[in-house]
């Protein structure tokens, strides 16, 4: 009788251990994105223009170079940072300058941002400068977008902005 009571108590304690596990492994639900909201993602991976010009190698420089490294021009490696601006319905939502990657700033610049915005129709302006020698924004995209609730709109860049 005593052992039956003990096993019953064990069953209760096992239940008290596992039932909360069953519950908390999927409940309570977590609201990640409020209702009537959508997401806008910007993902740009682009190499800025090289800063500076290539210069011709003069005869004196040839002598300083090892035989296998002889070339007609010496070119700088550093690339321009990317200046990106996102304007939504006339308000600046994001503006940043992202340097080139690499120890010598000679790699690509990468930008990723996720924004939560209300669903509905918006006027979107994306512009980017990838050359410090040029003023303003050589790359620009302006569009009117209609977003459904929970829709994900991705703005990426490849020879120009594009929306997906």
């Amino acid at each position: 009788m005593a052992s039956a009571r003990r096993y019953l108590a064990q069953a209760v304690l096992y239940a008290l251990f596992f039932l909360p596990i069953v519950y908390i492994t999927h409940q309570p639900l977590h609201r990640h994105l409020p209702e009537e909201m959508a997401e806008l993602k910007i993902a740009v991976r682009h190499a800025g223009k090289v800063i500076g010009e290539c210069t011709d190698v003069v005869a004196a420089d040839y002598r300083a170079l090892p035989g296998a490294a002889v070339r007609p021009q010496i070119c700088p490696r550093e690339r321009s940072p990317l200046q990106l601006e996102l304007v939504l319905d006339g308000d600046i939502l994001y503006r940043d300058t992202v340097p080139a990657s690499g120890l010598h700033d000679d790699g690509v610049s990468s930008i990723y941002r996720r924004f939560t915005i209300p669903a509905g129709t918006h006027r979107l302006l994306l512009r980017m400068n990838d050359d410090v020698a040029v003023a303003g924004y050589p790359w620009e995209l302006e569009a009117e977008v209609a977003l459904q609730p929970a829709q994900v709109l991705v703005a990426s860049f490849k020879d120009g902005f594009r929306l997906e």
Binding site: T25, H26, L29, H30, H32, E35, P149, A150, Q151
Partner: peptide
């Protein structure tokens, strides 16, 4: 991935840092 996750059931034992 074309639609954002709105409401999701989480394993709160391991995923509690995510919110």
């Amino acid at each position: 991935l074309d639609m954002a996750v709105t409401e999701v059931g989480l394993d709160w034992v391991f995923l509690n840092p995510y919110p």
